[in-house]
Nucleic acid binder design. Sequence first.
DNA 1: TTAGATAAATGATAATTATCACTCTTCAAG
DNA 2: CTTGAAGAGTGATAATTATCATTTATCTAA
Lengths: 234, 234
Amino acid sequence: MRNKVQCEECSEDSCLIKYLIGSEYLKAVRNGMTQNVYKKDTHIFKEGDPIFGIYFIQSGGVKVVTTSLNGREQVVRLAKAGQILGHRGLDSARYYFNAIALMDTMVCFIESKVFNATCLNSAELSYHLMILFAHELRRAELRVKYQAQMNIREKVAEAFLYINEVFGVNPETKLLNISLSRQDIADTAGTTAEQVTRQLRDFENEKLIARDKWSIKILDIKGMEKIVEDYAIF
Amino acid sequence: MRNKVQCEECSEDSCLIKYLIGSEYLKAVRNGMTQNVYKKDTHIFKEGDPIFGIYFIQSGGVKVVTTSLNGREQVVRLAKAGQILGHRGLDSARYYFNAIALMDTMVCFIESKVFNATCLNSAELSYHLMILFAHELRRAELRVKYQAQMNIREKVAEAFLYINEVFGVNPETKLLNISLSRQDIADTAGTTAEQVTRQLRDFENEKLIARDKWSIKILDIKGMEKIVEDYAIF
DNA sequence: TTAGATAAATGATAATTATCACTCTTCAAG
DNA sequence: CTTGAAGAGTGATAATTATCATTTATCTAA
């Protein structure tokens, strides 16, 4: 959990704002930026809320979730430190999704007015934001395919690969750097908590993972990848 | 099917290039643009192909498809005249998806080098492309939810709403402006052609649609929308 | 430490959906 | 017009997955 820092001193190298360092636009961004802590399970923003601005995660982790009227949630994105939130509503008056903290999370906030003006002024920031959009769109569309075509075994394996990709594992313990409930994993995989539990038992029996009290240890990442290899693109 | 036209004279008002009319950048774009016809069922580009450039649909219709190694296809996007293709690979060396003509389709092509330079130079084009990305990303993520949570009835209804949204219906005949095979509808809905056929029969029995030789007539669009209302966002 | 609440795990079963095997219909080519 | 291929439709069944009901394990507050 980090203390409030200036952008130049922030250790999050992957943050888009890093592209502004040294430019004339950084000052406006920094002057309009606030930093807040969100406790685990609290909303950073909610679908339907008026859009105030754009968020950057300084530390912690967030799930971006869409909820159906029947109460079911679908995790559409996981985000770690350095990543941006709220950009899906760039052209909109309201947030379309919920951003919920998966652990205590420090988030930097910039008002839309400031961020949008900076995008219009800094070709470099704008360009990198567009690259990010292209990348996220591709990933989202692959996830449409996964949901349409994968069986539960494959979906749960894919969910773990995604969690590992975003949050990584502790190199020593091999434990995923985040502890997620069975329901969160299920909402990411697109199935039920019971099916996740069953599949985890199978994976553990196959020595692909180990269930630890706090989180999951990934024993054989290649073995997990092999489960979903039919869905790889070129 | 249109003949080759200049951008200023093209009747496709929704094309992004329209934002360049009157600007100094239009000439480079126009000089670097070619127009080609793709027959129904042919590829405009294939996943894995090196990226040559960006396409704009002048007339016709295209499905953007991702294919799994097991041969299954998932339609991730439908696109009509005026819309852009190939922008998902903006930052990439290869196309990630296939674009396949759903009917004879005329497409304008701009080399990546020209298009990217124009984006960097024209803040207006860049901005509108970003808006398009935000919009498409939201839609793609909603589709993740639909695939994860909807049953077949709902998925097929949603597929028809999407087809109607993109291609519309003939106001007189109420027939969808495009004739899609049961397999194409299934690849859009994320199910099998048999299930699509069954569901169509049910919808017809419920007077929501009528099956015509050439296409489908949507009799009660509100009734179709009601089937998926649980998944609406705010 | 205890009690209560919640999460995880498990077994059984109901519901859903893909698959398979066919028949019927339509279309295109000769 | 005929024939063959392909698409659409249908019925049956196998496979998969959600749901339900319970038990076990864990966590938190007093």
